[in-house]
Design a protein around this nucleic acid. Sequence first.
DNA 1: AAGTAGGGCAACCGCTTTGGG
DNA 2: TCCCAAAGCGGTTGCCCTACT
Length: 342
Amino acid sequence: MGRAPCCDKANVKKGPWSPEEDAKLKDYIQKYGTGGNWIALPQKIGIKRCGKSCRLRWLNYLRPDIKHGGFSEEEDNIICNLYISIGSRWSIIAAQLPGRTDNDIKNYWNTRLKKKLLGRRKQSQASRLTGSTEDNNDRSGIETLSNSAIERLQLHMQLQSLQNPNLSQGTSMPMWPCKLNPIQEKIMQSLQLLNESSNPLMMQHVLSDGPQKVEPFAPSNNLIEQMYSLPSTMLVNHIDNSMSGVNAGLTTHVTGTPDYIKPTNMELQQYLAFQAEMDQFLSNANGANSASVDQAQANEFDFCKEMDSGKDMTTWWSNEFESNSTSSNSWDSSLVLDHNIS
DNA sequence: AAGTAGGGCAACCGCTTTGGG
DNA sequence: TCCCAAAGCGGTTGCCCTACT
């Protein structure tokens, strides 16, 4: 037996809201509030809408403090930084931008901001389709990474290279905004290695007099296996899991104005589960590959221990967020927007 | 002028989380 | 502790507008 529908679908109007409906909803909520029950609201007001639809309309459009229109460069900056750090957690990102809704930010990201930053992705994907069968097979493992994770790594790579053109020479610079965990750092290093060796799968063109163009990465499984001395499928799955785990923790640590977001029980549970999983993975890896597991593995473990050492997770993240946001290492979207948008 | 493609955005869908009984 | 309804959330859809052919 499924859950009862929240409203009578047959008697509910769908589609764009009329000005009359808007006015009724707005007037009612301003006078009486929502009464803590969105489902009952449409009946009270006398409109044939689903309660969820009313809620969405109010939150995304009718609320008096909603900001419509263009996003400022500062807002771009915040959105990019947070997206790279925590992924598509739009509600959390929206909490840092007064007057903006998660839906607004999501749309803005998907339709504009992402294109600005990953503008050349389409081209490179098309070029990849012409790649060899061997390449394609080689890549199958890395593609098990979530699109979001790949995208964020690409963004990191791109932003870093824009911020620091010397990257292509192997210089390792601190990467703001988020403190990557050692796994992520390893991936970034692998990208740099690929870049250094002019691997055709990772083409980064630094033009002397024009915009820098960074192609998405696609490290081969062979390379990953060499770096970690572990089966690539194992690593790829582990990395993906680890990143989602870390991200679950990160979402709790955004302390910028106006609101402090407390970690939910679920997030804390996810974080603890992540650490347990990391421990398990590392002990298994050490057992199976005792002779070849390198320092990176140990660093992963140290990373977990550091986060688990009683040090307040909030501090761990918020310090990064706040100290860097005013430091010279903070990422300025204008760098990207100036250099990368054609 | 008509047709078409693509972008932007509002709204919907369905899954997850929360909170009260 | 469990169950269920409501709220929250992110992904997706589809409409409308504009630019281009």
